[in-house]
Design a binder for these strands. Structure first.
Length: 203
DNA sequence: GTAGGGATAATCT
DNA sequence: GATTATCCCTACG
């Protein structure tokens, strides 16, 4: 295993707290597209580029924080740029990036990644061979990237789990969110993805 | 290739 | 006791 020190070029271009705090949640959901998530694990480095996001705002009925602070959603009220991870359907975890000022319960769900680094390890984690099956959904990417609930509340400006700038260029498609029930603000156009990218969870 | 439904448990009422 | 920001397998064209 390669030893990486804090002065390594590998840590250049890590997105700072200022990046997350300088935007409202909808703007950040767009800005996160094209950024690359890295996870340093014992089995090596895993990474993927964010190709699909969904925003959840405080005054939005589908938001976990809509009814206020609880034990589960507490990280959503913390500092922008920390992670919020929850368990859903008794089966899957979902990975979110907290947004908005402290005390406001907003976050962005990461719905899909384009796998980049550590492809063999991701295939093992997922028991799938096709690249399209590795990260094309919120539950899938958490499994592929070996993210677990211990990262709930982790600052994404620090290893071993962090985001970096990339040079990617693309067009953004805006549409409605996935899996939102009736009467829960399901019509809001809070889902964003990279036009033409084949690694999104659905068109 | 697509549609339908079951799995499964933390969280909140 | 109901609900849930999902995934995967099976059945059928």
């Amino acid at each position: 295993m390669t030893l990486i020190t804090n002065s390594s070029p590998f840590y250049k271009n890590i997105l700072s707290t200022e990046f997350y705090q300088s935007k409202d949640t909808l703007s950040l959901a767009r800005a996160l597209l094209g950024k690359e998530i890295f996870h340093e694990t014992a089995e090596g480095i895993l990474s993927g580029i964010i190709v699909e996001t969904e925003a959840y705002l405080q005054n939005d009925k589908a938001c976990h924080a809509y009814k206020g602070l609880t034990a589960r959603n507490a990280p959503m009220f913390g500092t922008a740029g920390t992670s919020y991870i929850y368990f859903i359907y008794g089966v899957h975890h979902c990975f979110n990036i907290v947004s908005g000022p402290d005390g406001l319960g907003e976050a962005i769900l990461i719905r899909a990644l384009e796998p980049k680094t550590g492809l063999d390890q991701m295939k093992k984690n997922r028991s799938k061979e096709s690249l399209k099956d590795l990260c094309s959904g919120p539950g899938k990417l958490v499994q592929a990237m070996a993210i677990d609930k211990n990262f709930n509340g982790h600052s994404l400006t620090e290893p071993p789990l962090f985001l970096k700038q990339t040079m990617k260029e693309f067009e953004i498609i805006e549409t409605t969110r996935v899996g939102i029930g009736k009467g829960k603000d399901e019509h809001l156009p809070y889902r964003f993805y990279i036009k033409g990218n084949k690694f999104i969870s659905k068109p």
